[in-house]
Design a protein around this nucleic acid. Structure first.
Lengths: 214, 214
DNA sequence: AGAAAAGATGAGCCCTTGCTCAGGTTGTGT
DNA sequence: ACACAACCTGAGCAAGGGCTCATCTTTTCT
């Protein structure tokens, strides 16, 4: 593996697929990357292995991607998109309602989002901070923004700093989710776990309330 | 880089250092590994690079370590130990006292623990889930156990499930800590951040209380 | 049909990394 | 002083991985 010099890759000759045939090739490559990542981890995801698994030649890979990293970036992009869709879809129907009853669906939405592909998500998280550019951070930013917005729309909650509160909420739940997903994946379905997560969020919101005059 | 076959390394000939000279060599190697990790990331930490930076020959490296992974494992071991010491030292003096006043020092203890070597910690976290054996999970287990114990010792808090509560608490704060450390390192010192963390913990504990009869 | 563009192929070059080994140097015990 | 063990050295080999390019096949367009 030639050490990736700090110099960026100045590839110019990457082609974009126009015929259905080549689009299928690209799909196969992206899918193969995800499969290898999930099944055998980051190290196993070599360009040769990806091409082999995709059933195309190594040459084809380089016709559409600058190398392994480009594949990873594309994978992250898609994965983040899928998760965003799940969360956005779930956050819609929360027009004014009792606190407890809206937190629960949101938690379950987040769990659902992380259920999209837990193992892949884990590996991507491992990759993301290293490579520049795209990353799963986008996802957290997105969710945090949504949550902050929702908090602003509920002045009755008396949240003084919606942004900070949202950030903490998202990083906290994200941390719990990822760790649990990695170490005790079954747990995540359990009633007690969901209850605990809800308690975490609700407790924090109550505690962050400006007027402590219960 | 020969793909690491699933077969473990059956090295038998690793020597342990007895003279001061060789102990210094081992130190230099471990230190060099940490430095490279922090400065240039995991990929740059090749055996040759480590040996070079340590100012010893590649042969010496293999006299005491089975390869790069062994160095990483040793690094993790030491790092976890250092963090444990910080936390253990801080958790001692919390004999019966008002909730708020003991949570704050604990949070600050955790922050201090993560301050031991944030960047290194980040890289190690990236490594740990992949390699088998040792990992930073030990640290979280340790802290969770400590916290669960502390919760049991305070029946007045009315925590029904100390273990689950402790787990959530640790994964949540850990998640917030790591994400913040990675994305907004300055934040971690801010008063507002510490306040928010405390609110997170206290809110959760209050919410988890069995008797909601405030 | 014919030409040109798009797509696909894979042997193989070049590079790096992991790691060994034969031989030299320094320390230790007697 | 002598022997033996501990220690150190680094050239270089084997194993792969990244990536190119000359060549072939398929589709599209006129």
């Amino acid at each position: 593996m030639p050490a990736r010099a700090p110099t960026k890759k100045p590839k110019i000759r990457r082609r974009s697929p126009v015929q259905g045939r080549s689009q299928a090739t690209v799909e196969a490559l992206v899918t193969a990357t995800a499969q290898i990542l999930v099944a055998r981890g980051l190290e196993a995801a070599t360009t040769n292995a990806i091409a082999a698994r995709a059933g195309v030649s190594i040459g084809s890979l380089y016709q559409y991607f600058d190398g392994r990293d480009a594949l990873l970036v594309e994978l992250i992009r898609r994965h983040v998109e899928a998760m965003k869709a799940v969360v956005a879809g779930g956050l819609d129907q929360l027009e004014g309602a009792p606190l407890l009853s809206i937190v629960r669906p949101i938690i379950q939405g987040l769990i659902a989002a992380h259920r999209v592909a837990p193992r892949l998500h884990q590996v991507l998280h491992q990759v993301a901070p290293v490579r520049g550019e795209a990353s799963l951070d986008d996802f957290e930013d997105f969710v945090a923004a949504q949550v902050a917005l929702a908090l602003r729309g509920r002045p009755d909650l008396g949240i003084g700093e919606p942004e900070l509160t949202a950030r903490i909420l998202v990083t906290a739940t994200g941390g719990v989710m990822r760790t649990t997903l990695r170490r005790e994946p079954e747990q995540i379905r359990s009633e007690a776990f969901v209850d605990a997560m809800v308690a975490l969020v609700v407790g924090f919101l109550r505690e962050s309330s400006v007027d402590v005059t219960e």
